[in-house]
Structures are given as C-alpha cells and as structure tokens.
Design a protein around this nucleic acid. Structure first.
Lengths: 200, 200, 200, 200
DNA sequence: AATGAATGAGTTTTCATTCAT
DNA sequence: AATGAATGAAAACTCATTCAT
C-alpha cells in the first residue's frame, strides 16, 4: 500500500457510503421496499453485505437517512436562485418551478419519497410535511407573509401547502409515468393554477 | 330449509369473508403491507390461516379486491345525491365535499388506498387515476364539459384531476393525523380553493 | 323417495366408490401423488371431499386399495384363457402376451403401479413382487415346474421373474411414452427374447 | 494465505455442499420425496435451512443435480476398465457386471434414481433412458455394432436396453431388499441370461 | 349418508443480520 | 475495516382430515 492509497482511504470510505446510498435509492425507487433486500443493495453498490452495517446501523437507518438526504436536496433546489426580495408571486413561482423541474429530472428521488411516505418508515415523518426543518422556514415565512398581506386565502399553513405542493407532486408523477408530457410552458400554467388556488 | 336457515347460511359465509376483508383493511392501513402477514389477518378475522384461501386466491388477490371495493365505495359516495343537472360548480362542490367527508369518516380506507398506490400492487392501477372506470366517466364528463364551456382552464384531464383531487386527499390525511381540524365550513373553503385552481 | 331409488341405493354406493377409485387412479397416473390432493379427487369423482372418508379410512387406504385392485386385474388378465394344460412355452407366452396387451391398453394402470412402487406407499408391498398372492401361485408353479423340468435355468424364482417381467413392463412404458411402437409381431418377438433369457 | 488455508477453505465449502447432497440423497432414498422436507435435509446435513439455498436455487434444482451426479457415476463405473477392443460379449458382461456391483454397493443411489424416475421430477428425463448422453453413446455403439454383426436380435435399441438393463436393475433391488443374495457367480449367471435374451 | 367449509400443521423459500476470517 | 457465508425466524401457501349441517 503506497501513499496515494493512504490518502485515498477517507475518500474510499465516503465513496463506499455514497455507493450504498445510491444503490438503495435506485432499488427502492424502481422495485419498492420488497424489491430491495440488503444483499441486492450490497451487490449493486459493489460492497460486501456486512459492510453496509459499518455505515448504517439498520436497514431502517439506511432508508431514513436516504429520505432525509433526498428531502434536503429538494429544499436546496428550491432555495437555489430564490428571489428573496422579489414579490410573493415571483418567489412562489420560483419554488414551484424549481421543485417540478427537479422532480422530473430525478424520478428516482420522487419515486423513493413516495415509497417512503406510504410505508411503515414514513409514519413518523408524516407530520414533518414534505419539507425539512431549517430551510422550510423560508417557505413557511413566504406563505405566512402572503397570508398576512391578504394575498393568500386565510387558511392554515398545512392547507395552503396541500393546495400548492399536492398537485405539483402529482403532475410530476404523471409525467414520469408517461401519462402527461410536461414542458416549460405547461409547468408555468400548472404553477399558475396552484397560485390561483392560494390567491384570495 | 326454513327462514332461519335461509337468512343464516348466506350470512355466515358473507360474514367470514367480510371479517377477512375488514381485518386485512385495518392491518394494512395501520401497519402497512409489511405488517399484515396472512397469519395475522387470519387471527384478527378470527378464522384459520387456510380459510382465507377459500375466499381469495392469493394475498395479491385479497389486496386487489379490497382496493377495488374501497374505490367503488368512493365513487358511490360521490355519486350519492349528485346533482346531475345542476351547474358545473354545484356538481364539482358536491363531489369534492362528498369525497372529503367520506375519507375523514373512513380513515382506514384512505390509509389503505395510499398504501396501495405506492406499492408493487398499485403499479398497474396507477394509470387508472384515483377513481374507477364506469362511474368515473361521469366525473370525467363533468370535467370535459367544463373545459368545453371554457369554465375550466384548457388543460389535460389528468392535470385537472391533480389540481382538484390532489389537495383534497392531502388535507384529509392531515386531518386524520391531527394536523388540522376540518369542519363543514373549512371543507367548503378548500373545495372552493380547488375550484379556483381549475377556473379560467 | 320411491322404490326405484330404494333399489338403486346400493348401486349408487358402489358407483360412488368406483368413481372415487377411477378419479384417484387417473389423477395419480397422470400427475403423480403430488398432483392428486383429496379435494381434487373428490371433485373429479363428483362427490364431496368428506365422502371419500366414508369409503376409505385414509388417503393411504384409498391408494393401497387401488393398487391391490389393479394388481388383481393384472393377474385376472393373465389367467384369462390360460392354457393350463399346454406346454410350458405356450403358457409362458400366454402370460407375457396377455400382460403386455393389458398394460398398453390400460396405460393409467401401468403408470399408477409405477408411481406406487416408487413411493412411501410401495415400500411395504415391494417384497410381494409384481403380482398378488393367491393366483400368483399358478405363475410360480409354472416357473417352478419349468425349473424342475430343466427347461429354465436353475435360478431363484425372484430372478426368473425379473428376467421375464422386468423387460416386459419396461417396453410397455416405452410404448406408452411413444418411444417405441408395439404390435402383435413385436410383442411376440420380445416375449420370445424373454423366454430365451429363462431357457437353459 | 498459507498451505493450510489453501487446502482448508475450499474444503469447507465443498464439504458443506457435499453434506447437503448426501443428506438429501439419503432422505429421498429412504423416505421418498414426501419424507425429505428441506428443513430435515438441512438438519441432517448440519446446516441452516437457508444455507441450502446458497448452493442450490431450488428444491428441484437440488434434486435434479443429485440425479445428474448419480447418473454420471453409473456411467463412470461402467466405463471403468471397459475392454474397448474386446469381443462384444466381453464388453457387455463388463458393463452389466460393473453396473450390478455398483448398484448393490450403493443402494441409496439405486433407490434415489428409482424415486426420481417415477415422480414429477423424472418426467422430463424419462426419455433419456437410464443412462446419460455423452458416454451412453459408447454403450449404444456397442449395441448397434452387435446388431449390425447379427450377434443381437434385430430389435430397436430401446427394446434391447430393456432386455438387458431391466432385469439387472430389478435383481439389484431384490438384493437390497434382502429378497435374494447376489454374489459374483450369480451376477455372472444373470448377466449371462440377459445376454441370452439379446442373442440371436 | 353426504357434504364441503374450515382448519392448522407442515412445506418451500426469503432476507436482515451476524461473525469468523 | 471489509467481507460474504451462514443463519433461522418468518412469510405465503397447501392439503389431509374433521364436523356441523
């Protein structure tokens, strides 16, 4: 073993971990939890079956960790280029458009999240809604602000979220399944419709 | 065979079948497919393990049969008192209100359907959208008509369905989880918001 | 219930019993013991599952009873037209020819017997050789006589039986499976060959 | 890795596989397929139930693999010391004698093969006659040659095989069951009798 | 006497997890 | 640290037999 390898080691560790995550993500997304046994995840990741347990305590642990990661990526994407000081509509349209674009580019992530939500794993996380904690606040703030300014209907946050995000996730699924064909113009129209649902 | 027998015999059979269905529905709704092994369903239904296979070919068969039944009940509920000749808005509000009322009264059915949709079982049924075939046409016709009359936005049916049904199902889930508290007034407001999303 | 039925009853009983036997024989012959569950036998026989247990104590009992019956029919056939006072060769040829003709006319019986011999059921009966007890003696006597007269090789009865009946049963199986095509001339030739094996 | 490991490691693997095969062979031979559930095979082999599935895809796979192995051993034994250039009779006697000696030394193998032939497993293999493909040709060639030289009766190969191998297998079974007591002299006599059946 | 619905022990097979190497 | 063979508990499903009708 030479120096190069010595320095690689930490990387190899991270790489291995990432490979496991990616393998599990793909398998669960494509085959469901039934179709993703640990041995298969290990094989797809190119590691030994026992190795997974060096990085994750459990299958549960692995799954939950992936979920959290994917969730975070969703928020990151929505915050990228977020027009913090723009008008409410612009900010909302940015969020909706960014989310939809991301979901249809990453069908595995969408499928995984849906598998997760409706499974024993997702029971706990349900209450945390679609989005994480820290950054979600920015989105919550936007909605709160819009309600305060009497731009949005005077409804609870949870309901407003459902009105906005519910249809967007649904149409992404339909797109992935080939049921509809989304393009930029159509995305804009749908986001616009969701805006109409929110607007007073 | 006297009257007593006439009324008893069929009941015993149907009762047992119904007990199995109810047991499976509850277990799947509460614990997911993982948490609903055939032996547990049998025990909860108060029958022998082998008995289930007299009524259903398969676990798949059982699950699919329950799904179909639940689906049909959804449609029935929406069609009950449907103001066939009323204006579009009235008809739509009826459907939305009836659906929400039913779902929050039957949380097990909602949980079951969600489990089903995101599972190997649901892959096939996915394209059939949320609702059945025969009666769905009445709903589809309503939407088609509303588009033709330029009351709704000129979007595909799948998208219009997502805009309308997506949020409604979501808020029912939130209600069941105790996140929000739906009452008649609130249901009306939300259905109204969904109407706004559809309206031109 | 009128007289006619009263007198039929015993017949009906026998008919039912016979139907069960025939159904079981066919199923076992065609599908093996694995492919002949009691419920299927009952259905094929046109009786209730429980009814079989009025006629036979057990599945074992049923199977063993069929075997005995079939065995007896084999002996009967071989004894039909048996030239009791003819020369040894004539008697032997009669037996061999009659057996082969019967087996290829009743492939189900042959298949059944073979299934039986090689199965837990057959372990006990093995020692009884291919044929029953009472009538077998006539055949045994023939062989004994032929040995005493120094027509046959001086070998034990069991070995002489193997030399004679072994190939005959084998060629019948081959015929049934379509491997060879037996006709009267060929049967005679093969029986003749078996005779050669026995002859001093 | 030192020598010890080199020789140990492969052995452990092979040993376990061999133990499974041996356990299954014995159980099937002694109790039939009914009496050889996977759990019992595992226990007898001293391995976990799941372990069998690391070595064999299926129960079918296991059974078929054992059959193939046993079949090959039969052919090997018959070919060992085969007097390729000797006269027809010598070659035939070698084959018959070798087969009988092997079968009475390995009663489990004989019982297994018989179980196999008359079972769902054996249906496919039936047409391949008693012996394999590659090496069988040597035996077939011998028989063909003997027919061509007008040493054997002018009959199909399948019939000649039945005349020769049928009785031999039968007497081995009788010997194993204690019905007769084979020794070298007797084996020679019986093989001679089979030769007589074949000879013109 | 006849039925056939109900049963539950028994079968094959899978898979998360462990542990010797 | 990494491995992957081994495990055994648990799953779906079958079927001989019983028993209320």
């Amino acid at each position: 073993m030479d120096k190069a390898e010595k320095y690689d080691k930490p990387d190899k560790c991270a790489e291995k971990r990432e490979a496991i995550i990616q393998a599990a993500l793909e398998l669960v997304a494509e085959q469901g939890f039934h179709g993703a046994p640990m041995a298969m995840i290990a094989e797809k990741a190119g590691v030994g079956a026992g190795t997974i347990y060096r990085y994750f305590e459990n299958k549960d642990d692995l799954i939950r960790w992936i979920y959290k990661n994917v969730e975070e990526r969703f928020v990151e994407v929505m915050m990228q280029g977020y027009p913090e000081h723009g008008p409410v509509r612009e900010r909302l349209v940015h969020i909706g458009t960014a989310l939809v674009r991301h979901l249809i580019n990453e069908p595995l992530q969408l499928r995984f999240v849906e598998q997760f939500h409706n499974s024993p794993y997702g029971v706990d996380h349900r209450r945390e809604k679609i989005f994480g904690q820290q950054k979600k606040d920015i989105i919550s703030e936007l909605f709160d602000e819009a309600v305060a300014q009497q731009i949005f209907k005077p409804l609870e946050l949870a309901i407003l979220f459902s009105l906005f995000f519910g249809p967007l996730v649904d149409i992404c699924r339909d797109h992935i399944l080939g049921f509809i064909k989304l393009d930029d113009a159509l995305i804009e129209q749908v986001v616009g419709a969701c805006w109409d649902a929110l607007r007073r």
